[in-house]
């Protein structure tokens, strides 16, 4: 074999291997996509790999109604939006006090917040459940919104505090000498400068909240309050449940996330590779 052919051959082998892995990684999602457009009889007679004879929307319609998609999607968006906004405000306030204000005991509080990030949900869930039952706020979206906002703000505080500590002191002191109070300083100077960090944080909070499962499972028991991941997890995969409806409901859970990913790809990859996020 000449050098050039050998080179071409090994290039071919490399691409073949990577493509095989590609099929393994994307195959399950392709299967979901393909079979969502079939009817169950067609799935059973022609198998999961065949292209649909007629592209039918029946399975998707079935799943759409069964999980009550508009409602659960609305719940997910509502919870994610409000929870992320609240988490941003709390993170900003905490980080402002500790990073710019350098209040006494800041390091001590920071350690607190870092520990909170790593705690497993199970170590908090029963008292949280008990507390919200006691307060009459069990089975409300508010419960999930405030708990997730508090948990996410622990991470936000940690991240923003390190951003604010690197803030030029001269700017802060100059503004103080000009007579700016803490609120003016925050609103007129810190927020505009920190806006890029805040928007990255917001995207992360939004997606984490959208994908969250455990708290939704514990707190949202009525069908009308469920979120998308919860509603999909609760559709059973047993005999008697239409096979292609199951794949269609998974597809409905995947689509919004793929959309977020495409929309915020730059923000997300920057955040993930920054190392500390996720």
């Amino acid at each position: 074999m000449s050098y050039a052919t050998r080179n071409r051959f090994s290039n071919f082998m490399a691409i073949a291997m990577l493509t095989a892995l590609l099929l393994l990684m994307l195959g399950p999602l392709l299967m979901i996509l393909l079979n969502s457009f079939k009817s169950e009889p067609e799935y059973l007679t022609r198998g999961p790999l065949a292209l649909p004879l007629t592209w039918s929307l029946d399975s998707i319609r079935l799943a759409w109604n069964r999980i009550n998609y508009p409602t659960v999607l609305g719940n997910s968006l509502y919870i994610s939006l409000l929870s992320s906004l609240l988490a941003i405000v709390i993170s900003l306030f905490n980080a402002y006090a500790m990073g710019i204000g350098k209040v006494r005991g800041a390091t001590f509080f920071l350690i607190f917040f870092i520990i909170a990030i790593t705690l497993p949900g199970e170590a908090l869930i029963y008292p949280q459940y008990y507390l919200f039952k006691w307060a009459g706020l069990y089975d409300t979206r508010l419960a999930v919104i405030v708990i997730l906002a508090t948990l996410n703000s622990a991470f936000g505080t940690y991240l923003l505090t390190s951003v604010f500590r690197a803030f030029p002191r001269e700017l802060v002191e100059a503004a103080m000498i000009d007579g700016a109070g803490p609120f003016t300083l925050l609103w007129r100077m810190v927020v505009p400068i920190a806006l890029p960090s805040l928007s990255v944080l917001f995207v992360f909070f939004f997606i984490w909240t959208f994908n969250e499962f455990f708290l939704a499972l514990i707190f949202l028991v009525s069908n009308s309050k469920q979120t998308v991941p919860l509603a999909i997890a609760l559709t059973k995969s047993e005999r008697g449940v239409v096979i292609t409806m199951q794949s269609a409901s998974s597809m409905l859970g995947i689509i919004p996330c793929i959309l977020f990913f495409v929309l915020f790809q730059r923000t997300l990859t920057r955040g993930v590779t920054a190392g500390s996020i996720k």
Binding site: A97, L124, L151, S153, A154
Partner: peptide, 20 residues
């Protein structure tokens, strides 16, 4: 600046520290 820690600490105490 201490005032700005209050909302965070209240929520943190109520939903994380006390349950823990």
């Amino acid at each position: 600046y201490g005032w700005y820690l209050i909302p965070g600490l209240v929520l943190f105490t109520l939903f994380i520290f006390a349950p823990f």
